[in-house]
Amino acid sequence: MITQNVVENIMFEAMRLAATQMPPDVRSALESAVDEESEEIAKAHLVSCLKNAELSESGKGLVCGDTGFPLYFVKIGTNVNIEGGVPAIYRAAQAATRRATAEAYLRPTMVDPISRANPGDNIGPGMPKVEIIFTDTPCGLDIIAAPKGGGSEIFGTFYRMLFPSDGLAGIKKFVIECIKDSCYAGKICPPAIVGVGIGGTADLCMKLAKEAALLRPVGTVNSDPRMAELERELHDAARQLGIGPMGSRGINCVMGLHIAGAVTHTAALPVAFNAQCLIGRRWRSIIDESGEVIFSGDVSGWKEF
């Protein structure tokens, strides 16, 4: 039996780590990009990000000062019993978010959309956002905390209902133009991890795009060869735009291009775009039946892509 208190503690810790550490796959992608860029400002953008992360890892600040939207992705295995049942996870997420805000690991950023009033604790209707999925494997309680930065979410979210006659050309045009527009002046903090959803309903399509951006390790290849080919083509195309880190002159406006698909209506071809910024904030905590907890920046296997 896992108590609500334990769930709160590991959610807090995952959020704290996400806010202060750079995931290893993201770091190595940025390091490769530094070597590749030749313009002074392009290089300086990347070096600054890596240095900023080193400072936060040694206890001097945050990986980024905009800690964004507090998101939790929770996977529940067959071997998990939670005191108070699954709804305890929502209560734990609220308590963890409130504590992370009080201890200044999260900036108080969530406000009422109309009055703009700020309660100061990042809690309100819909926030923190908790996605819960169940699996039929004994994977324990597998949580990813992702403080999703404002830049990437606000400037890097697009959806379009295409039609079957728009074809693959439509998907490609949509994605490459989204990349160009959202990278202008560094709005989404490039090099971005670009998530693309294809298929489903409008909400499922956007969810797939977000999961592809946030929950898949950078540098991995799609298990569907058709998607893998499309990813490679679009990533190569983005590198031809001449837009680099933080929108400066350069090559690397995209760090990874990840597609996730779902079946859809025979009349429809929905496509969604969601970007994750260059610091790729997310951290994972897994607790198994013995109560042992693992914290990790590696998100592989949380979901299959």
Binding site: K173, K180, A237
Partner: peptide
């Protein structure tokens, strides 16, 4: 913007293509 037509052509998007 100037590079975009060439990039789109290389992606196999026909010239003058637009969404429905």
């Amino acid at each position: 913007s100037n590079k975009l037509p060439e990039i789109e052509a290389a992606l196999g998007i026909p010239a003058g293509y637009d969404f429905t």
